[in-house]
């Protein structure tokens, strides 16, 4: 069931509960205390792989690089049977066509960053044009950035309208809204930006571009998950979550899954509603899977670097 989202900005969209950072950190520390062993660990590792947005977002990205990454997306480690594919490939708009072609007939989605990624410092027209271009090239998902400068200056209506306009330009593509939480400065603003993005039409909210430190953290992600939860309580509508940047070990990924499991529950424990934006996480998970299967610690040399 879908509820009608507000067509226009309302200041009440910004009203949310206060966030106590210390309390958030105490809660996230508890997630890291869960001991994930045996079958539950293997299940978690496979789930992690299936939730990865395998990402390359560099100035030196080329057709060759993107093609190799797409192959990796489909063939994480062929020596092991039964591995899932990753959820998506995440590239710049200029590589969407290449990726789409390389991934044809597979279930792996193509996500494109857009809206003058990563800073977002451009005009709305250019951002809309870039979004339309990426969608026309075949992108299944658009990862936009919010205008943090405007947000921090209190121009919430501008930020809201921009997201709503990009959402309209996405058509059938799902929209992920990057808050760039490392630039927002407080968990209260993370909460506020999350509410704004959700109200403006985000299908996913996403922590970071990966270009700014700190990127995804457990506390920031928890606050965003709780915003999603409150939206669900209120409307019955789901919104997806994508922590991105800085999640490079399977252990950390499992902490995120524990957090997801105990905050939003089973309905979000799939690639449709949860993603990891990461470039090196997949191989670390593969190392762990190999360790579980073979019983000895592994070397990175046995796993392809792309």
């Amino acid at each position: 069931m879908k509820t009608t989202r507000p067509a226009v900005f309302k200041p009440s969209l910004l009203a949310g509960p206060a966030i106590d950072q210390t309390g958030v950190e105490e809660r996230t520390a508890r997630f890291t205390k869960r001991s994930i062993k045996a079958a539950s660990k293997m299940q978690g590792l496979l789930m992690t792989l299936s939730m990865i947005d395998l990402t390359t977002l560099e100035g030196k990205d080329s057709v060759g690089k993107v093609e190799q990454l797409c192959y990796k997306a489909l063939h994480l480690h062929d020596a092991f049977e039964g591995l899932p594919t990753v959820a998506a490939i995440c590239v710049y708009p200029s590589h969407v066509r290449t990726a789409k072609k390389a991934l044809q007939d597979s279930l792996v989605k193509v996500a494109s960053v857009a809206t003058a990624f990563p800073a977002g410092q451009s005009s709305i027209d250019i951002k809309l044009a870039e979004t339309r271009f990426a969608v026309a090239e075949g992108a299944d998902e658009i990862d936009m950035v919010i205008s943090r400068g405007k947000f921090l200056a209190g121009e919430y209506e501008y930020v809201f309208d921009e997201i709503a306009a990009i959402k309209a330009a996405c058509g059938a593509a799902r929209l992920k809204v990057i808050l760039e939480t490392g630039e927002l400065g407080s968990l209260d603003d993370v909460r506020k930006a999350s509410q704004l993005a959700i109200a403006a039409g985000a299908d996913f909210i996403k922590t970071s571009t990966g270009k700014i430190q700190p990127a995804a953290t457990l506390p920031v992600t928890l606050v965003m998950l709780e915003t999603i939860r409150d939206h669900y309580y209120k409307t019955g509508c789901k919104v997806g979550m994508k922590p991105a940047g800085g999640i490079s070990t399977s252990k950390l990924a499992l902490h995120y899954l524990v957090m997801l499991n105990e905050t939003l529950g089973a309905d979000w424990m799939n690639p449709h509603w949860f993603r990891f934006g990461a470039s090196s996480l997949a191989n670390n998970v593969l190392l762990q899977i190999a360790k579980e299967k073979e019983g000895c610690y592994q070397s990175p040399n046995y796993f392809s670097v792309d």
Binding site: R34, S35, I36, K37, A38, A39, S40, K41, Q43, G44, M47, R229, Y232, Y233, T235, G236, L257, N261, E262, L264, G265, A266, D267, M269
Partner: peptide, 14 residues
């Protein structure tokens, strides 16, 4: 609306 908590992924004994 209800969340399905503790239903998707259970932790093996540790």
């Amino acid at each position: 609306p209800r969340l399905r908590l503790g239903a998707g992924w259970s932790y093996a004994p540790a």
